[in-house]
Simulated scan of single mutants.
Amino acid sequence: MELNALAARQEFHEINARSSRWVMREAIAQCVEREEKRDAFKEDAMRTWEDH
């Protein structure tokens, strides 16, 4: 079995073994983290634009 497929299968198994509440909390945490990174990128871009 290909390494990526094996890793994906293992991850799927681990996710299914977790509680639905844990999965929801993890999804929310990842979403918040992405939004914070997006906001930081936008702020940095605006500062760069204003400096020039």
Rank of each mutant, 00 (worst) to 15 (best):
residue 26 E to R: 14
residue 52 H to E: 09
residue 18 R to K: 12
residue 4 N to A: 13
residue 20 S to N: 06
residue 31 C to D: 09
residue 39 D to M: 10
residue 30 Q to F: 04
residue 45 A to G: 09
residue 43 E to Q: 15
residue 14 E to P: 00
residue 49 W to K: 09
residue 47 R to L: 13
residue 41 F to K: 13
residue 50 E to G: 01
residue 45 A to T: 08
residue 30 Q to M: 11
residue 44 D to I: 05
residue 40 A to C: 05
residue 47 R to F: 06
residue 13 H to C: 03
residue 31 C to A: 14
residue 42 K to M: 11
residue 26 E to Y: 07
residue 47 R to I: 05
residue 44 D to L: 14
residue 13 H to T: 06
residue 51 D to Y: 05
residue 42 K to S: 07
residue 45 A to Y: 07
residue 9 R to N: 01
residue 2 E to P: 02
residue 37 K to T: 05
residue 9 R to Q: 07
residue 48 T to F: 11
residue 45 A to H: 10
residue 2 E to L: 15
residue 5 A to D: 03
residue 22 W to L: 10
residue 45 A to Q: 15
residue 39 D to Y: 08
residue 35 E to N: 10
residue 40 A to S: 12
residue 39 D to I: 14
residue 2 E to H: 12
residue 32 V to H: 08
residue 43 E to W: 04
residue 36 E to R: 14
residue 49 W to N: 04
residue 12 F to L: 15
residue 14 E to G: 00
residue 49 W to G: 03
residue 7 A to Y: 06
residue 33 E to S: 15
residue 36 E to P: 01
residue 7 A to R: 15
residue 46 M to R: 15
residue 11 E to M: 04
residue 51 D to A: 14
residue 42 K to A: 07
residue 4 N to F: 03
residue 9 R to T: 09
residue 28 I to P: 00
residue 21 R to P: 00
residue 42 K to P: 00
residue 1 M to C: 02
residue 47 R to C: 04
residue 20 S to M: 03
residue 2 E to V: 04
residue 45 A to V: 14
residue 51 D to I: 06
residue 23 V to M: 03
residue 36 E to W: 06
residue 16 N to E: 07
residue 24 M to P: 00
residue 19 S to C: 00
residue 27 A to L: 10
residue 46 M to Y: 11
residue 31 C to Y: 13
residue 1 M to L: 06
residue 15 I to L: 11
residue 11 E to W: 01
residue 9 R to E: 12
residue 41 F to Y: 14
residue 39 D to S: 06
residue 13 H to K: 10
residue 17 A to C: 01
residue 44 D to M: 13
residue 14 E to R: 14
residue 46 M to H: 10
residue 17 A to L: 02
residue 50 E to N: 08
residue 19 S to E: 00
residue 48 T to E: 10
residue 51 D to V: 05
residue 15 I to Y: 02
residue 15 I to A: 02
residue 21 R to F: 07
residue 49 W to Y: 13
residue 37 K to H: 09
residue 29 A to W: 03
residue 25 R to C: 04
residue 25 R to F: 03
residue 6 L to Y: 01
residue 36 E to S: 07
residue 37 K to S: 13
residue 50 E to L: 11
residue 21 R to M: 05
residue 37 K to L: 15
residue 11 E to Y: 01
residue 28 I to L: 15
residue 26 E to D: 12
residue 45 A to S: 11
residue 39 D to A: 07
residue 16 N to G: 04
residue 26 E to L: 08
residue 10 Q to S: 00
residue 44 D to T: 12
residue 31 C to I: 09
residue 7 A to S: 03
residue 36 E to L: 15
residue 7 A to T: 01
residue 24 M to D: 08
